[in-house]
Amino acid sequence: MKKVLLLLADGFEMFEASVFIDVIGWNLVDGDGTTSLYSVGLQREVTSTFKQRVLVDYTTDEVNVSDFDALAIPGGFAEYGFYEHAYDERFLALIRQFEAQQKPITTICTGAFPVAKSGILHGRRGTTYNLNPVRQQTLKGLGVNVVNEAIVTDGNIVTSWNPSTALDVAFLLLEKLTSPEQADKIRTLMGFK
Rank of each mutant, 00 (worst) to 15 (best):
G33P: 09
G33I: 13
G33M: 11
T34C: 12
T34V: 12
T34D: 03
T34H: 11
T35N: 07
T35K: 09
T35C: 15
S36F: 10
S36V: 08
S36D: 08
S36N: 08
S36G: 09
L37V: 12
L37C: 07
L37K: 00
L37R: 00
Y38W: 10
Y38D: 00
Y38K: 05
Y38V: 07
Y38A: 02
S39I: 08
S39W: 03
S39Y: 06
S39M: 08
S39K: 12
S39V: 03
V40C: 05
V40A: 13
V40T: 07
G41E: 00
G41P: 08
G41Q: 04
L42M: 12
L42D: 01
L42C: 06
L42Y: 06
L42A: 02
L42H: 06
L42Q: 00
Q43G: 12
Q43D: 07
Q43H: 15
R44V: 09
R44G: 01
R44S: 06
E45N: 11
E45H: 11
E45L: 08
E45Y: 14
V46H: 05
V46G: 02
V46N: 00
V46P: 04
V46F: 06
V46R: 01
T47V: 14
T47P: 01
S48R: 07
S48H: 10
T49F: 06
T49A: 13
F50T: 03
F50E: 03
F50Y: 09
K51V: 08
K51L: 11
K51C: 06
K51G: 02
K51F: 10
R53Y: 04
R53A: 03
R53Q: 13
R53W: 04
R53M: 09
R53H: 13
R53P: 02
V54W: 11
V54Q: 02
V54I: 15
V54F: 14
V54T: 10
V54A: 01
L55N: 03
V56L: 02
V56N: 03
V56P: 04
V56H: 06
V56S: 05
D57G: 02
D57I: 07
Y58P: 02
T59E: 04
T59A: 03
T60D: 04
T60V: 15
T60S: 02
T60C: 15
T60K: 04
D61G: 04
D61P: 05
D61F: 14
D61I: 14
E62S: 09
E62M: 13
E62Q: 15
E62I: 12
E62H: 12
E62R: 11
E62G: 04
V63P: 04
V63D: 00
V63M: 07
N64E: 11
N64C: 12
V65W: 09
V65E: 02
V65P: 07
V65R: 03
S66Y: 09
S66G: 14
S66V: 14
